[in-house]
């Protein structure tokens, strides 16, 4: 349970202003999205009365999932928290040993232009005996840290699959060139240059990989659409689409990679095709 000062808080403060005119009463609580589990319930609703340390609180709001530990708790006023601690001696099974005025966390909103590291160091120097944690470090303790740990592994798997794709497409086009030796020889007999043959094989490979890339992206988008709710609930976060700029950039980047894959994979078979001696190639199909 987090005690906040509704006047200065900027974590749930904006939500309070929008939903409760910035006011949180002595016996009111705002719950995190998973706090109902703590109370042994399948869900909590606004208006429910929940008992915490022998004190009853009216639920005035349920927050959206954040993926952070806050989802499991609730927000009350700092005064209510202090009172809760004092009364715990008689209302709770175990007394909360919190001195009046004692706080565990002081959150500081840093000017966007300021360097968070400099501010953190300045606070640490000015107030000995405290630990200063920046918001980024705070985030890395949860979902962000998990994703950052997984990212290199996912990248490695992606690179592995890409190498396999290049080898497979290369092998496929080597077989295609072998299958079409007679046709390639005939084209040369009709006047096709080696560079034409080379470009023809490259073009077919690029067409294949560009189409494959577009198809893969379409399949991926459909899978995300179908599974977004499942992924979001398993991670405990709300699903959010990336910005339009990111989607456009990612799509273009992905297509460029697909085309580059086709080019790299077809280099060897295209070179082999362009170096065939025409009559030997024509006769190989006999």
């Amino acid at each position: 349970m987090v005690g906040i000062d509704p006047e200065t808080d900027f974590t749930v403060g904006p939500w309070l202003k929008n939903n409760l005119n910035g006011k949180l009463g002595r016996n009111e609580v705002i719950l995190g999205s998973n706090a109902h589990i703590f109370f042994g319930k399948s869900e909590s609703k606004v208006g429910d009365i929940e008992t915490f340390y022998g004190n009853e609180f009216v639920v005035v709001g349920i927050l959206e999932p954040t993926g952070l530990g806050l989802d499991d708790g609730g927000f009350i006023t700092i005064e209510a928290a202090e009172e809760l601690a004092q009364l715990s001696e008689i209302t709770a099974e175990r007394q909360l040993e919190i001195e009046p005025g004692q706080i565990s966390t002081l959150m500081v909103k840093v000017d966007p232009q300021a360097d968070r590291g400099d501010v953190a160091r300045a606070i640490a120097d000015a107030v000995p005996g405290i630990a200063v944690v920046s918001s980024k470090e705070l985030m890395t303790t949860s979902v962000s840290r998990q994703l950052e740990t997984m990212a290199p592994v996912l990248l490695l798997i992606g690179v592995g699959f890409w190498i396999i794709a290049v080898l497979l497409i290369g092998a496929l086009f080597t077989m295609v060139v072998n299958e079409r030796r007679r046709e390639l020889g005939l084209l040369q007999a009709m006047g096709a240059t080696r560079s034409f043959i080379f470009k023809q094989v490259m073009l077919e490979s690029v067409q294949l990989t560009a189409l494959g890339g577009a198809f893969g992206m379409a399949v991926g988008a459909v899978i995300i659409l179908l599974l977004k709710s499942t992924v979001a609930s398993s991670l405990g976060v709300e699903f959010q689409w990336p910005s339009a700029g990111f989607v456009v950039g990612f799509t273009l980047g992905y297509l460029v990679l697909a085309v580059a894959t086709g080019v790299i994979a077809a280099l060897y078979p295209a070179a082999v095709a362009s170096r065939l001696e025409p009559y030997q190639a024509i006769r190989s199909g006999e």
Binding site: M190, G191, T193, R194, S195
Partner: peptide, 9 residues
């Protein structure tokens, strides 16, 4: 190669 291709065509 280009000249030979032209001759053939």
């Amino acid at each position: 190669n280009r000249g030979l291709a032209r001759l053939r065509s």
